[in-house]
Amino acid sequence: MKRLYLLLGLLLLVLLLLPLVLDKYALGIFVMIFFYAYLGQSWNVLTGFTGHISLGHALYVGIGAYVSTFLAQKFGLSPWLGMLAGGVLATLVALSLGFLGFRFGLRGVYFVILTISCAEIARLVVSHIDAVGSFSGIFLDFKPGLANFQFRGNLPYYYISLGFMVLGSLAVHLLARSRTGRLMVAIREDEQAALALGVNTFKYSMTTIGISAFMTSLAGTFYANYVYYLSPNSMFGMGLSIDLILRPIIGGLGTVLGPIIGSFVLTPLSEVSRAYFAKGGLEGMHLVLYGVLAILVVLFMRQGILVYIKRALKPLLKLED
């Protein structure tokens, strides 16, 4: 295990120094890698560790993006504070959704439908509120500065998103190793057995959906201030909800390194192939590629890529399991 931490430390050092040799385009790709790894990690807390499948996590991204942007434009509040406000609102929304799902025993596909419906309702509601730009969305004014969460060039975004990924993963790592983390896994593996042992599965399910939504919404604020444009479809849409779960699935569900590895594999592939296919007039073709990759992983590598990487590195790192 020690060697694994050493290796991860080395990799982090490389990532910290990498901007010295990267151009703006490559930096942008890394920002997306870190961003999606963090998003995947946030979703992983709920679905990977606790086993409640959410297909509507864009809901929380949207809340984070819209709340911080709205507060910044209306009241001049720094997005850093707006981010926390968004986090609180996202947590409250998630707890109400969780209450409906967990209190009334919605499981499996029914819970999935609940999460999709809530995200879609939010998308439609936001599409009709003029104060936040209704259908056409909001363009952010470009006011660079640390307090405004906006910067010239990609370098600051690189370090902020790297920070999100590293700190988010560290938080999930600590959570997973705690007593609560083991209870989460117990709920995923056998909720009935956990109940029979006296585990308050409702309480722990609520805790995880709250943590997951809070983390996810922070990424929303980041994203808004990175692309400068929010629309109901891009922030609350089904497309994002699916996009953000592919990395942990491909990397390895319910593991801390899974979402990161998944993002390092999938995000560059998606960005490069998007550019490549768009040049040839085949816009959207990269999504097909995505789909095929996801199917292949689900068919042949059920547990994700991480398992294979671990197996390959086992002798080198002296891993136990």
Binding site: R182, V185, A186, E189, D190, A193, A196
Partner: peptide
């Protein structure tokens, strides 16, 4: 059916 938690 001995419902233990397999990955713990």
């Amino acid at each position: 059916g001995r419902q233990v938690f397999p990955s713990l």
